[in-house]
């Protein structure tokens, strides 16, 4: 690709991103307001239920909830463009401030989890494919099937029960012990259980995917030729089969990012881990509109970005050298005799 073309290519992508974000924000904004529930509760707490209609009207006016939804949206969008996302009803401070305090925790949990999943899935997948239908493969597959059937939250509970309640070697909740915020060791201790859940929750899906993709490759004819020319099993597996699988794996792993991040939301709730997962859960339940908007925009942005990354990876691989044939052009299939 020439320089100009690349600008054009990425320019189009960026435009697409901005457009989808705009659409997303509007949809979320609208849905959030359509949903039943009382936003005032999140701001005024219990008091909201005892308000007189006049008081309510006044409160709603103050929070800007009386105007038609579309007008509200325009108002919000104007602020958002200038970087002002409003205040959180519950925390009574700037939304960005609230999020800034939490997002680091989630990134640590999700980010390290992602890397672990990426590496472990690759390792397990290759291991299984190498020993196809022999003891290690069957063993890993059995374990994988059972583990992937265990709901994350239940596994968390059992692990808490074992390690925190009975053995008392690991903390059961939070990101740090109060008063020891700076200590890395303490943080790591708090991360062990949530991390274990994040990894086991997603690992198997990707490990099995790698395994099956390699097994498909291993059945291709070129493996026979590689073998006939005297290459070792190791060289064929890593130099040829894995090489063919990697692009697809990368693009799927790109899409996995939102899934893994989304998974942390549940885990954060179970472990009362102060991340944005717990935050979004609260904001959705208690109609903390401004907070919800930003959190949805962040999640949505991650989803869209990762999608685009996956698509770009797919587009960068020349379809003609892509392993496996996906003939989408239906008419051309019948071409010739």
């Amino acid at each position: 690709m020439s320089g100009k073309k690349i600008y054009f290519y990425y320019g189009r992508k960026a435009l697409g991103f901005i457009l989808s974000m705009a659409v997303l924000s509007f949809v979320v904004f609208y849905i959030a307001r359509l949903a039943p529930g009382d936003a005032l509760v999140s701001y005024y707490g219990e008091r909201a239920e005892k308000m007189t209609p006049a008081e309510r009207a006044f409160a709603e006016e103050r929070l800007g909830l009386r105007a038609p939804v579309f007008v509200q949206y325009i108002r919000w969008a104007k602020g958002a463009i200038q970087g002002d996302f409003g205040i959180s009803y519950k925390y009574k401070m700037d939304v960005m401030e609230v999020i800034r305090g939490r997002i680091g925790n989630t990134l640590i949990l999700g980010g390290i989890g992602f890397i672990l999943i990426f590496v472990l899935a690759l390792f397990l997948g290759i291991l299984c494919a190498w020993y196809e239908d022999r003891f290690p493969d069957r063993m890993i597959c059995k374990i994988g099937i059972v583990t992937s059937c265990i709901p994350e939250f239940w596994l968390s509970l059992v692990l808490i029960l074992i390690f925190a309640v009975y053995l008392r070697i690991l903390p059961s909740s939070g990101a740090y012990t109060a008063g020891r915020e700076g200590e890395i060791g303490d943080r790591i201790l708090h991360l062990v259980l949530p991390m274990a859940i994040v990894v086991t929750g997603h690992l198997w899906y990707y490990a099995f995917m790698i395994r099956n993709k390699i097994l498909e490759e291993v059945r291709a004819d070129y493996v026979l030729l590689a073998k006939a020319k005297g290459l070792s099993k190791c060289k064929i597996m890593f130099g040829q089969c894995l090489r063919n699988v990697m692009p697809a794996y990368l693009s799927i792993m790109a899409i996995s990012i939102p899934h893994i991040m989304g998974g942390t939301y549940i885990i954060e709730t179970v472990f009362s881990y102060p991340g944005i997962g717990t935050l979004s859960y609260e904001s959705a339940r208690f109609k903390d509109y401004n907070l919800l908007m930003v959190l949805c925009m962040i999640s949505g942005g991650v989803v869209i970005l990762c999608n685009m990354a996956a698509q770009t990876i797919n587009e960068q691989i020349d379809p003609r050298i892509r392993p496996g044939r996906e003939n989408e052009t239906s008419e051309v299939e019948g071409f010739g005799g």
Binding site: A220, Y222, L225, K229, G230, Q240, I321
Partner: peptide
């Protein structure tokens, strides 16, 4: 066997479209 393959005997196959690795 690996030492023999390629050196003592070698093989070509029926379908040249699939016996070459498309990505290399």
């Amino acid at each position: 066997m690996r030492k023999l393959r390629g050196n003592f005997f070698s093989m070509i196959f029926q379908d040249p479209m699939t016996t070459l690795n498309p990505t290399i």
